[in-house]
């Protein structure tokens, strides 16, 4: 279990991570989602005690990272693919890490085999492709056979085969009961691998929720209606107690009402319809709306937005907040 309490990182005036509090729960894949520059990598470095938080603290099983005895046996991390000495063979790089944490030498060959680098174990990573470098980094993360694994943007820059390999690896690890914490700026990637989501934008926590909950809250389904008689339709819908949103093109979007009922209502009132179509907003759109609201807070005067976005994130039934934020964004 990794616990972050009020973790903040400031570089001079710039707040990169702003009062983050969340837990990474054991035995599941937690996706750490945010646009580029949201503070994901900084947060992960603080979790490993590489960067010192300006305020707040990180605890791993109740201990500070520096208090862990042989930390590679608790947490394996892939931060970036170029974190090895290019002039030292792949095997020797791993051997140095293994020795410092009293991991048997046989384990080095085991992980090299596991990530498919056994054939180039004696080669120097200087000449490795990005994908091979990534595999070596993952071998280092797996070295101590740790309970917790952390991957920072593991699929970045990989070819489809590499991406497939990493997804399978993460699912296998979770299936073995390991805790996996993986960052990404792609919602679609998370939807495939994560059980739980932590979303940040501009260093702030926007959501900390299970994947199904996030989907239920954010995969907004609505019915799109177009008519040459907008006032008449609007009145008819309002009279029936239905809330309507108007798009900039003049169409109506009606959430949470079955398409059949809307058709019947229009017929009852004799309104001509040019369109009556059920629509689904993708998770990617939901994510962009959510983080877009956070971005807007920093650059514009819409001070109330992040509170609403947050409210939506914290309250499983609170559809309103996210939608309002989305509409404004």
């Amino acid at each position: 279990m990794i616990e972050l309490a009020g973790v903040t990182k400031r570089y001079g005036e710039k707040v990169v991570v702003d009062d983050l509090t969340f837990h990474v729960r054991p035995g599941s894949v937690t996706g750490f989602l945010g646009p580029n520059g949201a503070g994901k990598s900084t947060t992960m470095r603080m979790m490993l005690d590489l960067d010192r938080p300006t305020a707040g603290q990180v605890r791993i099983d109740g201990k500070r990272y520096a208090e862990l005895r042989d930390p590679l046996r608790y947490i394996g991390a892939l931060l970036d693919a170029k974190a090895m000495h290019g002039g030292r063979s792949a095997r020797d790089n791993l051997m140095c890490l293994a020795l410092s944490n009293r991991i048997p030498a046989a384990r080095v060959d085991e992980v090299l085999e596991e990530v498919g680098l056994a054939a180039v174990a004696r080669k120097r990573p200087k000449g490795f492709s990005l994908g091979m470098g990534q595999r070596l980094g993952i071998a280092a993360a797996l070295l101590g056979d740790p309970e917790i694994l952390m991957f920072d943007e593991p699929v970045n820059g990989l070819d489809p085969e590499g991406i497939h390999w990493i997804r399978t690896l993460m699912r296998d690890l979770a299936a073995k009961g390991r805790t996996v914490f993986v960052s990404s700026h792609l919602m679609s990637e998370m939807a495939l691998t994560a059980d739980h989501l932590v979303v940040i934008g501009r260093g702030r926590l926007l959501a900390d929720t299970s994947m199904p909950e996030f989907i239920a809250q954010n995969s907004r389904s609505f019915v799109r209606m177009r008519t040459p008689e907008p006032e008449k339709l609007h009145d008819a819908l309002c009279a029936a107690g239905i809330v309507v949103e108007t798009t900039p093109e003049g169409a109506f979007e009606v959430p949470d009402v079955p398409v059949e009922r809307l058709g019947e209502l229009a017929a009852e009132h004799g309104v001509v319809l040019h369109e009556l179509s059920p629509e689904h907003a993708s998770l990617e759109e939901a994510f962009i709306r959510m983080t877009g609201a956070a971005a807007e807070y920093r650059t514009g005067p819409h001070g109330a937005l992040p509170a609403q976005a947050r409210g939506a994130a914290e309250d499983p039934t609170g559809h309103r907040g996210a939608r309002t934020a989305g509409k404004d964004a």
């Binding site: 005690d49 590679l72 947490i75 290019g86 002039g87 944490n101």
Partner: peptide, 13 residues
Amino acid sequence: TGMIRTSLAAVPQ
């Protein structure tokens, strides 16, 4: 080489 992060993750003291 960027090895320092890997080294410190292994030996945070």
